[in-house]
Amino acid sequence: MSTEARLPTVTPLGPDSVAWHVVGDRRLLLGAGTALLLQVAHPVVGAGVHDHSNYTEDPWGRLDRTIDSLLSQVFGGREAVAEAERLREMHKAIKGVDHHGERYHALNPEAYWWVHGSTFWTTVRMHEVFVQPLPDKEKRRFYAEWRRVGLLLGLREHHMPEDLEGFEAYFDDVVANRLEDNHTVRELLRSITMRDTPPPPWWFLPEALWRPVRPAGGNVLTLCAIGLLPPALRERLSLKWTDTDERRLRRLGAITRAAGKRVPDRIRLYPKAYRAKSLDDVH
């Protein structure tokens, strides 16, 4: 059966899902660097991004498209099916030879699932630090839903660990035995510092006003990107992390948790998540 014929048979997530309550909060953007580092440290993903991505030339556009895709997968309803098909079609052309001399393809199920699965892990981790830890029961439901989105994306049942315990063992094994330091990791780490990053196009900030803001933004993104990583991967990438850094991350987490309780949903949530939830409230 073709992918196009099979994908629509998977029911997209709806308002009864845990994912609708844990994805869509703007605070989770603080963990974007961690998610990307986990992904590009996988040799297949790192090679594909190095050879085919333009994120260094258009970092804000690339980030915006990535977030919009994720929100479509969770909140899009039937749009999630179209987004899954678009992603698979786009990834068909992403192939080549990596720096180990091995051929790679972006639709390799191992790599395709790693991107999806590591996003789950990062979302749970970001909630622990910046929102509130998910209760065990909700975390299990969230993982089961994430597998469902994986099926929508074209993965098969056997590509994904069956339950949360299986996923956690799988994740630890990939971190310990599969992830690596590579050119894309180093390029991404430089990009996160925002030293040469232009202002976001939606801010309409002139360079003169953006210049003094940029270092603070880069420091926060770097702190979060490194601090949320599994310690074993931090060590492999030779990333410095001190007790002072840990205290700074905890303080930032306390601030974001407190602020989130006072910010209205219209501002706290991404528009696609807010609209979906608002429509559900109406119905």
Rank of each mutant, 00 (worst) to 15 (best):
T197E: 03
L28V: 05
R190I: 00
W113T: 12
R140L: 01
S72E: 10
L188R: 04
L36V: 15
N54P: 04
V282S: 06
P43N: 07
K261P: 00
E165S: 14
P198G: 15
N219V: 09
P135D: 10
L189Y: 02
L28E: 10
A144N: 05
D58N: 15
E165P: 01
G166C: 06
G150V: 09
P109R: 11
F142W: 00
A259R: 07
R65E: 14
Y170K: 01
G96D: 09
G218W: 08
L249F: 01
W60L: 11
M160A: 01
N108Y: 07
G31R: 02
A216Y: 12
P15Q: 08
L63W: 07
S118G: 02
R262D: 02
T256K: 00
S278V: 07
V44L: 07
W114H: 11
A35D: 06
H127K: 02
S53Y: 04
D280H: 14
A258K: 11
Y55P: 05
W241S: 06
R62Q: 14
G166H: 09
E128G: 13
G31P: 04
R262T: 11
R156L: 05
V124A: 11
D25V: 05
D58L: 11
V282Y: 08
V149T: 15
W121R: 06
R214M: 10
T193F: 00
L152D: 02
E165H: 12
I255T: 14
R103M: 10
A84M: 07
A216V: 14
Q73N: 06
L229N: 05
R148S: 09
